[in-house]
Design a binder for these strands. Structure first.
Lengths: 212, 212
DNA sequence: AATATCATATACTCACGGGTATATTGATTG
DNA sequence: CAATCAATATACCCGTGAGTATATGATATT
């Protein structure tokens, strides 16, 4: 980043209002990234806001300066993840071809997001630590993703590109398979997220029995 | 239960040493069942041992009379779940036919166990709340299940009943899909666990694209 | 220059919940 | 019948960690 070091003639230490707002936003985001990593690694409950602060070289009250409370931190992380999923839905909807083509496109994005910090948090986190209100929003959003997935499936069944079966169970099966990397995949592994996504979607598309 | 009310001539209120041991064992198990249900519903952390006790009409120290501490309760629940998985492995290994036959058999059992109290707990619980030692045992056991699954897969690939792909990724894909019901399935739903298991395994076997 | 605002820290409060010390009752054994 | 042991309860302790009151220095505003 080093926000000010580029383009301007003299790197003045005085920031405009706009720059200050940006800086604040950047700090806020940095807190969220540090937090979500720790949530994913240790779980929400086992993550101490104090440790998150320490990992950034700041103190706990500074986090409270940027975010209301621990649940808020979690909710914001999840919101960022949800956003990625929604973008993937929109993107897949624009893909030309059969329903299966759109579904496959979506599944690959879905899988990749699940291996990313914020997406992974959406999948790994249950509603347990949330307030009633937070849990409601969370569940509604997840349901939205699920029903988008189911829409792709139904579309594909309608146009004959997907074999008929119970769309609900098929949806859960696909989502389940692609959710799982959120729990085991490590970004340092030798296979990249893209490659894993590709292989998994191929397996799910073709099935495990050999084709005649 | 009303343990003594049957078969014997006079239902004596005096129990033999053996009967007392059985009774104790039954109480211990009752605690575990009450606990695992609450763990699955609310998560380990959000489950208060006091609430578990209350759900049985007893008090917290009584739980400590039967089990060492909260982690112990969790570990015992998980051990019971793991046992079921190991039994499923043994059973599937004895199934005659192709590697795919054995795999399918195993997958169906695996899915069903994942919708049962203790099995579900194995899947839903992360290692986060455990002591180092507990986490080690837990991870070793899970790895054991995973590698049994992979063995079925490799066997099937060797005999040509399973299409070739990366066995590791295939294993994760199958396990992920079948793990997911541990998070959404409710025993009160209109479709039974057996039926869900059957349909999911069929989907995974055949793939979602229609066969030519 | 005076004042308000922002970013940050130190040092605190307080509820919650895991775990324990201890008393009580009733059955078991010598 | 005394002594012991098992099962259970009440009442407590105490660590932990979320969240806060408050101080301070720096920057911005008038």
């Amino acid at each position: 980043m080093t926000a000010a070091s580029a383009s301007e003639t003299v790197p003045s230490p005085f920031r405009t209002r706009e720059q200050r707002a940006e800086e604040r936003e950047a700090k806020r985001l940095a807190v969220l990234i540090a937090a979500v990593r720790m949530f994913n690694q240790r779980g929400f409950h086992a993550t101490l806001l104090e440790d998150v602060a320490a990992s950034l070289g700041i103190s706990k009250p500074t986090i409270y300066h940027y975010l209301g409370n621990k649940e808020q931190v979690l909710l914001e992380c999840i919101a960022l993840g949800i956003e990625q999923f929604q973008q993937a839905i929109a993107e897949a909807q624009a893909v030309p071809g059969s329903g299966l083509d759109r579904l496959r496109h979506f599944l690959r994005s879905y899988a990749c997001i699940n291996m990313d910090d914020f997406g992974r948090c959406v999948i790994r986190t249950g509603a347990e630590p949330m307030s009633a209100e937070g849990a409601r929003i969370f569940r509604d959003n997840k349901r939205g993703i699920d029903s988008a997935l189911r829409a792709f499936i139904e579309e594909g069944m309608a146009d004959g590109s997907i074999a008929p079966s119970d769309p609900k169970i098929l949806g859960f099966t696909l989502a389940g398979a692609l959710n799982w990397p959120a729990r085991w995949h490590s970004p340092d592994g030798d296979i990249g997220a893209d490659e894993i996504a590709r292989q998994m979607v191929d397996i799910l598309t073709a099935g495990l029995a050999p084709r005649a």
